[in-house]
Design a protein around this nucleic acid. Structure first.
Lengths: 253, 253
DNA sequence: CAGTGGTCTAGACCACATC
DNA sequence: ATGTGGTCTAGACCACTGA
């Protein structure tokens, strides 16, 4: 006998921990409630703090928890549905869109964007910064790249930078027909500037939505929007209002 | 004097490391190339292995690296664009779609899905499993929930489970008109079964795409597809063929 | 088998928020 | 000043891959 081990489960501790915590969150905690601190939790489960943290990290990634330095770990509300695309297509800045212009400066776009815009290397474009707020919380930060050729009639009357300038650029865009747009979504990590805007630490997971606006057979503008991955569910179509019971993903087999 | 420190950079080591490695990847490594092992790299940069791993983790999250236990860390190819929705809407299983039916069993759907389908609690539905392959690599695993009412004429002739059964269900679906569909995308972590299918470890980051198929005013089917977040860029519209230079996100200020 | 990445520990110190 | 989460260390052992 001796080594009789019905323990056929080489399941990592942090994984099991995550499952246990997840169930506890469902049954014993209310949204917004503060969990015991990490040192206590680790002691209670008989693991090192690093292991406990590995479990918390996953739960935060899944939008179940929210951790804030100096404050504590709280139970997160369900993710908010954020409408990224509806059936109608329209220019950014069209009346009623969810974004707020923050700034506008001329700058050289990153290579990937210059590619789509087919601008020359080193050529500057209008770079608008916009933010999006939902339920009182910032959910996304956007950089919108608009080449000068897309807003030929932009006058020098407006300020050379700032929110007013941004609004002027958006106004000029509306004057052209929008042929179509296409999008891509991928996982990224927040740059320092975006992180600040989103009230997260640099490196936080974000969903990066790249949108190309097509007009007159060319790409007239490119938007790169970074959404907080922990709090957002991006919706396409009419499903914005659909309520989700709980995290539709994740759980042990 | 004494404590003169021009070091005004309380930037975390792993963050700086990530930046350095990222630049090295751009300039000194080819896709598929194997990096030195973690212990060597850590020693080379004068940090603990855990710190080095924190940097590698982020780079893997961003799709720059691929790590495989027992093998090593390799430079990942650019993310593949995966078409999730085109302008045409169609049922799953329509000719030419990218999915391959694997299995079909009756089961009770998770609460969130039962909600959308408006099935009674405890009511079983057809649960199809499908996988999606791109460039020879598995990129997504799907669970498709189809209530019996959506396939009323499904005969008992077919096998009670298995791929043949799955194809029969899909065939029956095509017989009805599709009114529309809407989608949501969010970040999740791979369940054990999905992870196996995607050739990843459990807990790996995935993009969860939830699709509702509407027919006759009701939700006729619900699909929950999990895409590998490290290797996939989900595309909506006509941008599937667009080439991306490099990770359009992330980097220090 | 040797070598890889994956997990885990028990500490330490730091940055930050709050009282 | 206290308590929180965030970073970091220097080890250890395990699970897996491939020769």
């Amino acid at each position: 006998m001796g080594t009789t081990q019905l323990e056929a489960a080489p399941e990592p501790k942090y994984w099991h921990l995550k499952t246990v915590l997840s169930e506890a969150l469902d049954s014993e905690f209310a949204v917004g409630e503060i969990l015991p601190n990490e040192r206590d939790l680790a002691a209670r489960f008989g693991v090192a703090r690093a292991t406990l943290r590995q479990a918390l990290e996953q739960l935060e990634l899944e939008g179940r928890l929210q951790r804030r330095r100096g404050v504590g770990t709280t139970v997160a509300p369900p993710r908010v549905g954020v409408a990224v695309a509806s059936t109608d297509q329209d220019w950014p800045g069209a009346s009623g869109d969810a974004w707020q212009a923050v700034d506008c400066v001329p700058d050289v776009p990153p290579a990937a964007v210059a590619d789509m815009l087919e601008t020359a290397p080193g050529e500057t474009v209008h770079v608008l910064r916009r933010t999006r707020v939902s339920h009182g919380q910032p959910v996304a930060a956007e950089l919108l790249y608009v080449p000068s050729t897309s807003v030929p009639d932009l006058t020098a009357i407006d300020a050379p930078s700032g929110a007013a300038r941004a609004r002027a650029v958006l106004r000029e865009l509306q004057r052209f027909g929008l042929d179509g747009q296409d999008r891509a979504v991928e996982l990224g990590s927040a740059r320092a500037d975006d992180a600040k805007e989103l009230d997260r630490l640099p490196g936080a997971p974000v969903l990066v939505v790249t949108t190309r606006y097509l007009s007159g057979g060319v790409t007239a503008a490119v938007s790169m929007a970074t959404y907080r991955a922990d709090t957002c569910r991006l919706t396409f179509g009419d499903s914005a209002g659909v309520e989700i019971h709980h995290a539709p993903h994740t759980q042990a087999s």
